[in-house]
């Protein structure tokens, strides 16, 4: 699976990395147990500092999307696709809040927002 990073974007690079890996899991391109590159090779491929990759991996580890196993390396968490727990739900609520606030500022109606959500979900579930 290819990951594409825009170095000049306002979105921090570590977040771009993490978001694309989550998207890979959502789409099913990355399956629980699949291995990810080591921090060193990932950073080399990006031509960027290892801290950036480390930060992305810790972010994903905290959300339980990846597992960092000694010696085996980095793999997609076996619970990467799971029933949301209460904490997952809480976190998602918190993360969606600013986006919805922005949508309200832009005067999107609830129907508009629902349509948008539907479109995005459809795109993510699209079988390639």
């Amino acid at each position: 699976m290819f990951i594409e990073i825009e170095p000049d974007s306002t979105v921090p690079i570590y977040l771009q990395l993490a978001q694309q890996i989550i998207e890979g899991v959502a789409k099913g391109t990355l399956k629980p147990g699949d291995s990810l590159p080591s921090v060193r090779s990932f950073a080399a491929d990006l031509g960027m500092n290892m801290h950036t990759v480390n930060k992305a991996y810790h972010y994903l580890e905290e959300k339980e999307f990846i597992q960092i196993v000694q010696k085996k390396g980095v793999v997609i968490h076996e619970k990467g696709v799971r029933k949301a727990t209460a904490t997952d739900r809480q976190r998602l609520t918190k993360e969606m809040r600013p986006i919805l606030a922005e949508a309200l500022c832009l005067q999107l109606s609830q129907e508009d927002i629902e349509l948008l959500v539907k479109e995005i979900i459809l795109d993510l579930k699209e079988v390639k």
Binding site: F2, E4, S35, L36, S38, S41
Partner: peptide, 13 residues
């Protein structure tokens, strides 16, 4: 043009 860096996650494998 938008600059974009590409990484293949399975390259080493």
């Amino acid at each position: 043009q938008v600059e974009r860096k590409v990484v293949d996650l399975q390259f080493r494998e």
